[in-house]
């Protein structure tokens, strides 16, 4: 799958790219640029949230496509925990599906920079999976 298939115009606007796959889950990333900067030399919490959310959707779309399921995805909610300040480095994010039901999915996502074992932020997302016409 190419970036243009999976990434929204918003995601591309803030520089999100498909970095690769890990255990069948897409790993998304962005570089530190002015477009994602909050207070000087640090990531904006909103940009970090956008990366987490985009990684959650990319994972769910991948899994639904693997299962041959077609849905229109609707966000229900997202809760983001900010664990440490994002520095001027590449930021990565990858999700894990905690529950995939018939109508809704629960996904947890982690974002990290240098050290995979020290995430800078995590998110829990609930996503509604509606019929394509809804």
């Amino acid at each position: 799958m190419s970036d243009s298939d999976t990434l929204t115009p918003y995601a591309r606007t803030i520089g999100i790219r498909h970095e690769g796959d890990e255990d069948g889950a897409p790993v998304l990333a962005f570089e530190f640029t002015g477009d994602v900067e909050g207070r000087p030399q640090h990531l904006h919490g909103g940009a970090t949230s956008g990366l987490l959310e985009t990684a959650g959707y990319a994972l769910l779309r991948r899994e639904l496509s693997r299962l041959d399921r077609t849905h229109r995805l609707k966000p229900i909610n997202i809760t983001v925990q900010f664990l440490s300040a994002g520095k001027q480095r590449t930021t990565y994010a990858k999700g894990r599906i905690t529950k995939l039901g018939r109508r809704n999915a629960n996904i947890s996502v982690e974002a990290w920079q240098d050290d995979r074992d020290r995430p800078i932020a995590t998110a829990i997302m609930n996503i509604m999976m509606a019929e394509p016409e809804d």
């Binding site: 929204t8 115009p9 918003y10 606007t13 904006h44 919490g45 909103g46 940009a47 956008g50 997202i78």
Partner: peptide, 22 residues
């Protein structure tokens, strides 16, 4: 360039989080 789906002219949820955060 801030929409969430290519075929719909609706703002993505991501920039709304940034808006609320700011």
């Amino acid at each position: 360039d801030l929409v969430g789906e290519i075929d719909r002219e609706i703002l993505a949820s991501g920039p709304i989080i940034s808006l609320l955060d700011m």
